[in-house]
Structure formats: structure tokens, C-alpha cells
């Protein structure tokens, strides 16, 4: 399905993907009693954080992420992706790592799990990282920085 005025948009695939993410987070909540926050789970699995779910559970969730992507890639005949140059990946990775620890979460924990329960902290965090993400792309575009390979 096309969205009028947005030739690049894939609204149905987006909605289907979102529903799967919602089901995944719901399974974590109602099945394991935990928040499906990827930054926290990654910190837990690697031993950077000592609180949260068991390390074995954290690893299971983390291993599932590429596994799920692989299943979709095989089912659909490949996934289109265009990544940034290594220098940008390093800078972005450091900012995301420090930022998600200080901010206690990322797009999944705050943006999906927290916003959907109307958590004040998560709503503020989500509005903040969305605003700064939008501003960053705007500034980089204005400066003429081509990031993606």
C-alpha cells in the first residue's frame, strides 16, 4: 500500500512490524513480568548492569533479535539496508550507549513499553530523544553531511 504524498513510505509493513514488536513486549511483560527494553537487556547480558532479569534470560532475548531479523530476511528474500560510515557508527554508538544508560532506556523501553503505560519519565524521555534525533538529522542535512554509504 502506498501513502499519498510519501512515495517511500511502507505503512502496512510498518504497522505489521509494530504489532510484532508490541506482541514481543507484551510476552515479556505478561510472561516474564519484565520490560522489554533493549538497552537495559544488552547491559544486563554483558554484565555492565547487575540489575534486571537473569543474565541467561537477557542473552536469550538478545540472541532472538538477529534470529527474528534473519527469519524475515529469509522469508522476504532479503532486507534492504543502508548503513553509515564506520566513523559515524562509532560516534553514534558511543552516544547511544552513554545516553541510554544515563536516560535509563531507549526506543523500546521508554518509547514502546513506557509510553504505552503513560509513564511520565518515559513520555518525557521519548519526546526528548525524538526531538534531538530530528534536530540532529536537520543540522547534519543543513551542513551537507552525507552519512549513509
Amino acid at each position: 500500500m502506498m501513502l499519498p504524498g510519501f512515495s517511500e513510505a511502507a505503512p502496512l509493513a510498518g504497522l505489521a512490524g509494530g504489532i510484532l514488536i508490541g506482541l514481543a513486549a507484551a510476552l515479556m511483560l505478561l510472561g516474564a513480568g519484565r520490560i522489554a527494553g533493549v538497552s537495559g537487556i544488552a547491559a544486563r547480558a554483558t554484565g555492565i548492569s547487575n540489575s534486571g532479569m537473569s543474565r541467561s534470560s537477557a542473552w536469550m532475548f538478545l540472541i532472538g533479535l538477529p534470529l527474528g531479523a534473519l527469519i524475515v530476511a529469509m522469508a522476504t528474500g532479503g532486507i534492504e539496508a543502508s548503513f553509515a560510515d564506520p566513523l559515524y557508527l562509532v560516534i553514534a554508538g558511543l552516544a547511544v550507549g552513554v545516553g541510554t544508560r544515563l536516560g535509563s532506556g531507549c526506543t523500546s523501553g521508554h518509547g514502546v513499553c513506557g509510553v504505552s503505560r503513560f509513564s511520565q519519565r518515559s513520555v518525557v524521555a521519548t519526546l526528548t530523544f525524538m526531538a534531538f534525533g530530528i534536530a540532529t538529522v536537520a543540522v547534519m542535512n543543513m551542513a551537507g553531511l552525507e552519512v549513509l554509504q
Binding site: V38, P66, A92, V96, V98, G99, F132, V147
Partner: peptide, 26 residues
């Protein structure tokens, strides 16, 4: 800390278009 951390995360997200979940899945 919450707001500053989220701002820094947003900057990183904007630079490379990646957040933790998609980074690991990719």
C-alpha cells in the same frame, strides 16, 4: 540525568539511524 541522557541518545540515533534493538538485530 533522564533528560540529558535521552538527548544524547537522540543525537546518536540521528547520526547513524540506529538504536540498540535494530543495531543488534542488524
Amino acid at each position: 540525568r533522564l533528560i540529558g541522557g535521552s538527548a544524547l541518545f537522540g543525537i546518536g540515533w540521528g547520526i547513524a539511524g540506529l538504536c540498540p534493538g535494530p543495531g543488534v538485530a542488524a
